[in-house]
Design a protein around this nucleic acid. Structure first.
Length: 273
DNA sequence: AACGAACCCAACCGCCGCAGA
DNA sequence: ATCTGCGGCGGTTGGGTTCGT
């Protein structure tokens, strides 16, 4: 019989969001928090489906989002985590504060895949590309590439996660990231507890800690962007990764200061079109 | 300058898992 | 035990931008 569409198709707007819609959504969420997304469009006065609102918020409007290209360290971390978790973009994104699964997925498909191929590494299995029977490149589906436990450095978890124990040992020369980036990467990659928690599929880390990290009174609003600077928050975000997402309540973030600053930012961004 | 190719990324689509009835 | 609705996830697409000729 099929499921009902998530929203009434009639009268529901699609396509790019306007500044006006963004404002409505931001204002609504900042005043009411993230409640049931299905109800959001109606309550916020938007002609969008709830799913679209959620996506817009999580991928674009969330104030903790870090814009711009991924740093070398972040990229390396993504590669490492992908080697262990596969295409679980949301889980990977949870390890990179300020990055969304969509962003990482896009970056993977457009940049990292190519980089790995250039290095002679299969982006799917994270193994060195073999001269043998892999015609053209290795972008085929997961299923036909996963090794059958024949590799000494790759084991397979019961849920299909591919683990590389040492395949990710790239030459340091390739990683020209800053010392701080390296420290960040190392601290995450070498953290056995953290990695174990990944295997357990337990989400110890956070994708939403920003809302309490930026207390309204203490929020350091940048004049140009309207958001606290990433550099400043990053340490705090990293620190806060020791807490679960549920340790932070959304409702504590309710800054009219932020709303107006954010609105200004949005206007500026939309004017660029 | 004009055109096509390649690239990038925001947004959509459809499926899945979970919770509640 | 089954059904239904919702949120979330990963894959895909389409339009805009940049690059190369």
């Amino acid at each position: 019989m099929g499921r009902q569409p998530c929203c009434d198709k009639l009268g529901v707007k699609k396509g790019p969001w306007t500044a006006e819609e963004d404002k409505k959504l931001i204002n609504f969420i900042l005043t009411n928090g993230q409640c049931c997304w299905r109800a959001v469009p109606k309550l916020a006065g938007l002609r969008r489906c709830g799913k679209s609102c959620r996506l817009r918020w999580t991928n674009y409007l969330r104030p903790d989002l870090k814009r711009g290209l991924l740093t070398e360290a972040e990229e390396q971390l993504v590669i490492d985590l992908h080697g262990r978790l596969g295409n679980r973009w949301s889980k990977i994104a949870a390890r990179l504060p300020g990055r969304t699964d969509n962003e990482i997925k896009n970056h993977w498909n457009t940049h990292i895949k190519k980089k790995l191929l250039k290095r002679g590494i299969d982006p799917v299995t994270h193994e060195p590309l073999q001269k043998e029977a892999r015609p053209e490149e290795s972008s085929s589906s997961h299923a036909d590439i996963l090794p059958e436990s024949s590799n000494n450095n790759v084991t397979q978890e019961n849920d299909g996660i591919v683990i590389n124990s040492d395949d990710n040992s790239r030459s340091p020369a390739e990683n020209s990231s800053s010392p701080e980036d390296s420290i960040l990467l190392d601290s995450i990659c070498n953290d056995e507890l953290l990695l174990n928690s990944l295997w357990m599929d337990e989400p110890p880390l956070v994708d939403a800690s920003w809302n309490s990290i930026i207390p309204p009174a203490a929020a350091n609003i940048n004049d140009d962007m309207g958001f606290p600077s990433w550099e400043e928050n990053h340490t705090r975000l990293s620190d806060c990764q020791d807490f679960g997402v549920h340790d932070f309540g959304f409702d504590c973030f309710d800054s009219m200061e932020f709303i107006s600053a954010h609105n200004n930012t949005l206007e500026m961004e939309h004017k660029q079109y």
